[in-house]
Design a protein around this nucleic acid. Structure first.
Length: 271
DNA sequence: AGCGGAACCTGTCGGC
DNA sequence: TGCCGACAGGTTCCGC
């Protein structure tokens, strides 16, 4: 479900509520949500005070102490809900944190792909080590991106989804970025020119900034911490627009399947 | 090494 | 109404 703008929105809102809250107890309602040992997870996090929340790629990092972190991934349907009051039963609640001040942090996840993990040494975590460029990294240049993409024969669409190249993009924004950059999604990585790489970086930063400004995209069930919706879905130009006229040339947007995922694009505008 | 496909799990929607 | 297949914003594993 959530990509960088949605995760970043959640992180910002959690930072409005959680810092200073103490974790009084943890109720694990679905075992598979917790990576590795549940007792290890509970024992290390119970009693800790949450300092702040960070983001790397699509991971949420809850800082409790220098050597005490909770790393979360929302996958497709995970969400964090903060409540200042007692909570009712909900079938998709997977883990509930009782916090000081009678408040609760709830991890809710319909499809159970999302994960929570206790991490002591964040720097050495293999999952974080695998992450590629942050989209706004100043060291990310069109020359470097081109060189990296040119080593690959997969399509640019699937390469943009690869978190070890650029960290944070997903299916919606990959499609929107390629439309903005006027690049066909089936272009082979090997054929990406330096000018196209430049356009990818520019469009990526533009689209992600805009999406962030509107608190992300709420298509089916993305909700913010306070259950409000993001509004960037009102500004999508190709994603989910199959057969609708392209806003630039009016020819119908087409939908294709790449690596088992839908891709939307304009055959006329994207070369 | 890196690619595409299957799998993980649950819910919704559209067609017949 | 009911059933069935397609589809969903992600990642990991596996075989080639």
């Amino acid at each position: 479900m959530p990509e960088l703008p949605e995760v970043e929105t959640i992180v910002r809102e959690l930072n409005n509520h959680l810092p200073g809250k103490k974790i009084l107890s943890i109720d694990v309602l679905r075992k598979s949500t917790i990576v590795r040992d549940i007792e290890l997870f509970k024992n290390n996090l119970t009693g800790k005070v949450i300092k702040s929340i960070h983001r790397q790629g699509k991971y949420l990092l809850f800082e409790c102490d220098k050597d005490c972190w909770m790393m979360a991934h929302l996958r497709m349907t995970g969400k964090f809900i903060f409540q200042n009051h007692s909570i009712g039963h909900h079938p998709h609640n997977r883990t509930v944190f009782q916090l000081s001040g009678k408040s609760h942090l709830i991890f809710n996840d319909v499809r159970c792909f999302g994960t929570l993990e206790f991490v002591s040494e964040l720097k050495n975590h293999p999952k974080l080590k695998l992450l590629g460029w942050d989209p706004w990294d100043k060291k990310l240049t069109s020359k470097k991106l081109k060189e990296q993409l040119n080593k690959r024969k997969a399509s640019i669409k699937s390469l943009l989804l690869n978190q070890s190249i650029i960290a944070g993009l997903g299916n919606i924004y990959a499609a929107e970025i390629l439309f903005d950059a006027c690049i066909r999604p089936d272009t082979t990585g090997a054929n990406i020119t330096v000018d196209q790489a430049k356009r990818i970086i520019k469009s990526m930063r533009f689209i992600l900034s805009e999406a962030l400004k509107y608190n992300g995209t709420s298509i089916s069930d993305f909700r913010r911490v306070d259950d409000k919706q993001g509004t960037f879905q009102n500004f999508l130009k190709v994603y989910g627009k199959e057969k609708q006229p392209c806003i630039k040339c009016s020819s119908p947007i087409i939908r294709i399947i790449q690596n088992q995922r839908s891709t939307f694009y304009c055959e006329k505008c994207q070369k």
